[in-house]
Design a protein around this nucleic acid. Sequence first.
DNA 1: ATTAAAATACCCTTTTCGGGTGATTGGAAC
DNA 2: GTTCCAATCACCCGAAAAGGGTATTTTAAT
Lengths: 207, 207
Amino acid sequence: MIRVFIVDDHPVVIEGIHSLLQNVNGIEWAGHAMNAASCLGFFVNNMADIVLMDISMPGMDGVELCAVMKEKYPGVFILGLSTFNQGLYIKKMMENGASGYILKNSSKEDLIAAIHAVKDGNIFFSGEVGQALADYQKYSKSALPVLTPREKEVLELIAEGYTNPQIAEKIFLSPFTVDSHRKNLLAKLNVKNTATLIKLAVENKLI
Amino acid sequence: MIRVFIVDDHPVVIEGIHSLLQNVNGIEWAGHAMNAASCLGFFVNNMADIVLMDISMPGMDGVELCAVMKEKYPGVFILGLSTFNQGLYIKKMMENGASGYILKNSSKEDLIAAIHAVKDGNIFFSGEVGQALADYQKYSKSALPVLTPREKEVLELIAEGYTNPQIAEKIFLSPFTVDSHRKNLLAKLNVKNTATLIKLAVENKLI
DNA sequence: ATTAAAATACCCTTTTCGGGTGATTGGAAC
DNA sequence: GTTCCAATCACCCGAAAAGGGTATTTTAAT
């Protein structure tokens, strides 16, 4: 028997999931909480194998609660749950020890598959979530201005630690020109200096 | 019926997986290939729903083949397969469109669960693989020298684009002191300048 | 042919870098 | 209890590089 607990501030969601999981072979309803505090309260005297956890809740949110729960009860597997497809939060919650992520409007089959996968220590994402993660990456990339080939070239060399004079020598340009490309990079990407330029570039996989 | 194809240069693995999947309800054996080229050859005249793909193969490796396959046949789901737990390759293969990743010595149950999850467009990692990914992150972090709290603080402010004088004002220090911390960061992390400092910091999630 | 974008180039000011030096503090080891 | 060390703080100098602004020449596209 897999004991499933749910934390969500929307009664409708709790009811919905509850009825979906009712009479499912091998799954037992452990209970529910409507905020982080009462979830933690529940686990003082009770146990569950899996916690379905909303990402957005009043007070402590899912991302934080996930970290606290995994700290206190490492054996409990956490499955993120959300209506909206926010790649950033999914990522954060996974970094905090969640074992997977599904949408609240997932099919019964997906929900059960996810619960079983996670129970065995595996990691499960529903397809839409995987797509959201990918889109998140792409979005943050495509929101950036297009760099010219020369600019990319200069950017890469800057990231490798070469100075303007060194880059100039490497690609047969005047140091002034390299500097111009560098300034265009700063302007295009709307950053102040080399530090923020490189930070942005690495975070968006430009280099 | 889910048609499963396998690409692996080790006959033992092909045989092993084949026998594991034999007589499993809903799963059909589509065939096998022992290198990237014959896999691509197979798909010219045939189809499969899922490809179990080795990561390390002579010639074109799994990471590359994965990209080619998803380009040509986006509807085919790819499940990475490996004996060794290399976080870096897992990451690369996922970036190239794979739908999951399991170890060759996975249990029959995990293998079947993974195939079903992936077939529905979901994403599945076996627990050990998830661990490998996490370890990979931690490993690359722990190989770095330990930074003092002050150094981390300065590093973060540099990454946010503040100059030495600005940082000095912000944390009530002499600009000289900030500069000292900055130089220590460069020395400790063995980098030349701000560009490489920030690149290393972001890549290792120091900021 | 016109135009916009890209690539090129220069000057001046501010900031960083590399090379030091040295005082102070708080904890760990002897 | 003293010695030692790492961390933090502070300073100086000169050379090098980056940042702000401006301007000309290619190149590609319509």
